[in-house]
Design a protein around this nucleic acid. Structure first.
Lengths: 194, 194, 194, 194
DNA sequence: TATGAATGAGCTTTCATTCAT
DNA sequence: GATGAATGAAAGCTCATTCAT
């Protein structure tokens, strides 16, 4: 794809993200996306194989974005203190959720959607990103730092809590002064630490 | 509605629950429901004002079912020990999730769906049920039993953890022996207790 | 039909008249009528063979009502003065239009509707009532009182003008003081008189 | 819209005109129109926003056609004789009704239809065309040429008489020799002139 | 007499997708 | 690359009508 088309490709992705943010994944149509971008519906099929492909690429793009954001801020500060690393991860995830409020919502919505669950080729990006987190959690459990319990339970508390906190702030339910992130991180830590 | 129709009314609700369980709320059509029940599609409009009404009544029915289940098992065992009461609540919610695996999923899906969010008259049943839980949490915070933090964060950990655990069991990710509920309850308690 | 049913029969007719007054004939459904009367839809099919029959009976009833109203006020005042008789007819028609503002509208709407045009047995009542007017007009033409021109043209001016004037008054476009009926009658007379 | 589509656009309008001519406006469905044109029903929504838009554009098109027809034949023959101008207008309207027998019927039907009455943006074309006639009539009244009476009464006689005469000819009720237009125009003039 | 239940046909509208230009 | 045109399928909903009770 050339420059010009690269731009349009990104515009389509961006408007799809916006629309998924507003309504259910299943309610977002290629029609609506095209209208938002200001192109004709059929144009979308030049950039994407079909609707599933569009949703899928939105997902992959957002996962990659988040993944890159986190890795960049963690890998560069290597530490042998596992607990500190976890806490840094929480903070970075929270920063991401604050900076890209739509991104986490979209990732979560697509992940839960029927469309994604039944998609042919699911995101390799997601597997990879998830794999890193899984490795971290397993290491934490193995070293006795985290509770010896199925990792999905730990993972759920981490992500759902951070996302809810960011959403609450974003919607103005409370301010960062009312509920400092430290308290939230402490709550997560209390939950998952052995 | 008379006897005979009461049966069909419930069949429609039941099949709608099944379908919402399988796919996104927005993807469940009156057509599909009718086909599952074995009636003509227009027949649904005898029992429900429109599609929104159908979804809404499914929601209310499930919330009432859960509410009744929980209240019946808690109110009858009054205690002045607040902590014991919380732990009992967790257990009862878990029992419900185990017994009616689709119910919690459906409640959650509808609650998150765009359709419900933008519905005219939202469920009074839900407001009431939720109000009781809110009161409990606020009391727990006030007495210093729970962390002095926004209650939605506590609530999220309780529900999402219990639901995920039940789902994991249901999908065979692990058995009750592998991950006893006590451990899960302990994790929740560690998270929310002051 | 017994007394009770006679009442319901008339209620159905009355509500149908109301609905036809508000919208297009083709838009009035048995559903809506039943709802207005407060009965079940299927009940209508006890009093009327089908929808066409309902519309047809509404039409006949209204035509008979108008016919009786006019005849009663004209036949009882026999006169050999043909011009005076015409003018009396205009006045009586106008009184009817004022007293039953919906009636003339409904008659006209049904008369123009596709349903009526293609109905099996068209109203004998209408033929009869129309026949009388036709005879009057033909007599007027024969005696040289009216313009020697196709009678439908005369008839149209008479009815459409009287109806429009009554409607204008009813909708408050002007008052009877602003536009006295005498002026309207004079206009009609100027048009049709030889 | 490009060339090819322009053709289909006009075909859709034309078939809609035909159908409205045959039955009630409310009975004309996009289904029927599509079948007549020989396209799939959804295709109509490429050319028209929705059904209302289709009806509305049919109306505007016909009004514009009539308006252009009349203006072209009147404006080009300016005269300071007001009476002559009125009589010319009658003649031209009659010519139009003869040449486009469906057009006037369709305009009238849509104008009376519930759908149009309750439409959002009503035809600017109609307002303009009507405004010109209104101005003429008001001038006629002011100069003492026409009867000093509400203009809608004058307008009704003009239009309904001309239309009925044209329809009568079209349906073969009588020939132009039986009822020359001069007589009809005279009748109208007798009605409206002071 | 009355009604609840049921249905098939029809309606308007939106959708994902394809294709010729 | 881009678009207008086209379509079949499916959606939600209303309708006239029938029938058993």
């Amino acid at each position: 794809m050339k420059k010009k088309s690269q731009l349009k490709y990104e515009q389509i992705l961006a408007e799809t993200v916006n629309l998924i943010n507003e309504k259910d994944v299943a309610m977002v149509s290629t029609n609506q996306v095209a209208k938002k971008v200001g192109i004709s519906q059929s144009n979308i099929y030049i950039y994407f194989k079909n609707r599933d492909d569009l949703i899928s690429q939105v997902f992959t793009t957002e996962v990659n974005k988040m993944s890159a954001f986190v890795i960049e801020r963690i890998e560069t500060r290597p530490t042998d203190n596992l607990k500190a690393k976890f806490e840094l991860t929480f903070t970075v995830l929270f920063q991401y959720a604050l900076k890209f409020p739509k991104s986490m919502t979209v990732i979560q919505k697509i992940l839960q959607s029927y469309a994604y669950t039944h998609m042919q080729d699911q995101s390799a990006a997601y597997s990879k990103a998830n794999g890193m987190l899984v490795a971290s959690l397993d290491a934490g459990i193995a070293t006795g730092l985290l509770k010896p319990i199925d990792r999905t339970l730990l993972q759920n508390i981490i992500f759902s809590t951070i996302k809810l906190h960011a959403d609450n702030l974003h919607r103005g339910r409370y301010t960062e002064r009312d509920v400092p992130f430290d308290q939230v991180a402490a709550m997560i830590w209390d939950a998952i630490s052995a």
